[in-house]
């Protein structure tokens, strides 16, 4: 049995028929073909699949596609506007907040919502907010710096 779903991903309307058990992350990667969202675990720990859904950072491995019916989704591919990097993307580049790049899309999408909630987060807040996203390369040091850099940049732009 397949069910129809319709949603907006990065401003584009998409609709397909999917199995009810089909995870949102697999829909995004395999059906829609946006492979920037990654799968790093089976148990909702790693956060490599983080996207924003109706403005909330969520782990797309922890939702069925049908649960996202009607939703407005943004993935890493939708963050830069007209070739202009988002300040958080810039921050990760400036502060060497990535090495292998695999956790990076999830980290960046998480940070999008983090900085909406906490426009000027302390190091402690950033580290606490990063709890749901794992990185094995950076030891988190430069991820924290990248988000601090982006927060400063975004505050200055206001």
């Amino acid at each position: 049995m397949k069910l129809p779903v319709k949603m907006t991903i990065n401003g584009q309307s998409v609709s397909h028929e999917v199995e009810p058990r089909f995870l949102l992350v697999h829909y995004i990667r395999e059906t829609v073909g946006l492979t920037g969202t990654h799968v790093g675990c089976d148990t909702s720990q790693c956060g490599a699949c983080t996207i924003t859904l109706n403005g909330q950072a969520v782990k797309s491995c922890t939702l069925f596609t049908v649960q996202a019916d009607g939703a407005n989704i943004m993935t890493i591919e939708g963050l830069a506007k007209d070739g202009e990097l988002h300040p958080i993307q810039q921050g990760f580049w400036e502060k060497h907040g990535l090495q292998c790049g695999f956790c990076t899309p999830g980290m960046i999408m998480l940070a999008v919502q983090m900085l909406e909630r906490y426009p000027k987060p302390s190091e402690e807040v950033i580290r606490h907010q990063l709890e749901g996203n794992l990185c094995r390369c950076t030891g988190y040091h430069n991820i924290v710096k990248a988000i601090e850099w982006a927060a400063d940049k975004m505050a200055a732009a206001k």
Partner: peptide, 21 residues
């Protein structure tokens, strides 16, 4: 020097094995 591989990773354009179809 800032890494030249980063632009593809921070925009979701890295190409890992599982991305291949």
């Amino acid at each position: 020097i800032k890494r030249r591989e980063d632009p593809r990773f921070i925009t979701g354009q890295g190409r890992y094995v599982d991305d291949l179809k």
